[in-house]
Simulated assay, not measured.
Amino acid sequence: MSVLSRLLVLVGLLSLFHAAYSAHEFSVLSTKYHKNAPLPLDIKLETLVSVFLACLGLVWGSEPLKPVGWNEWAGELERDGGANPFKSLEERVNFVDIRAQRREFATWARQQGPASTR
């Protein structure tokens, strides 16, 4: 995270805390003197600007985005020298064909002849 992005996040968060404190003070004073008074425009704007500054600082300080497709990501990971975490899924055994195995067993059983008793 660069210095500018950290500074933006810090200023945004401090401003957000100030806006929250101002809104709290206004609500305390408005309950004493003015019932149901709307929140002043400057507090609303300070809140929006502070959230925008904090978000902008976080976005600027974040790492570059990774590819969305897992195959692109795994290919990039393998090119960089890392292990493919999906290798076990790509090399797994296919589904078992039960009918083919039954035919093979029936053929084997016929070749063995009648079962011998002990």
Rank of each mutant, 00 (worst) to 15 (best):
S2M: 01
S2L: 03
S2N: 11
V3Y: 14
V3H: 15
R6S: 07
L7F: 10
L7N: 09
L13S: 01
L14Q: 00
F17Q: 02
F17T: 04
A20N: 07
A20K: 07
H24C: 15
H24Q: 15
E25N: 06
S27M: 10
S27N: 12
L29C: 03
S30A: 14
T31F: 09
T31I: 13
K32I: 14
H34A: 12
K35S: 05
N36V: 02
A37C: 06
A37Q: 06
L39R: 02
P40G: 02
K44Y: 03
K44I: 00
E46Y: 00
T47Q: 01
S50M: 02
S50Q: 00
L53Y: 05
L53C: 10
L56I: 08
G57W: 07
G57V: 06
L58E: 13
L58P: 08
V59Y: 08
W60V: 09
G61Q: 09
E63L: 13
K66V: 08
V68C: 05
N71E: 07
N71S: 07
E72N: 06
E72G: 05
W73K: 04
A74H: 05
G75W: 13
E76R: 15
E78K: 08
E78T: 11
G82C: 14
A83T: 14
P85Q: 06
P85N: 09
F86W: 15
K87L: 06
E90V: 05
E90G: 06
E90S: 10
F95Y: 14
V96I: 10
I98K: 15
R99L: 09
Q101N: 06
Q101E: 06
R103T: 13
E104A: 14
E104M: 08
F105E: 13
F105A: 14
A106G: 03
Q111C: 06
Q112K: 13
G113M: 09
P114E: 11
A115R: 13
S116M: 04
T117W: 07
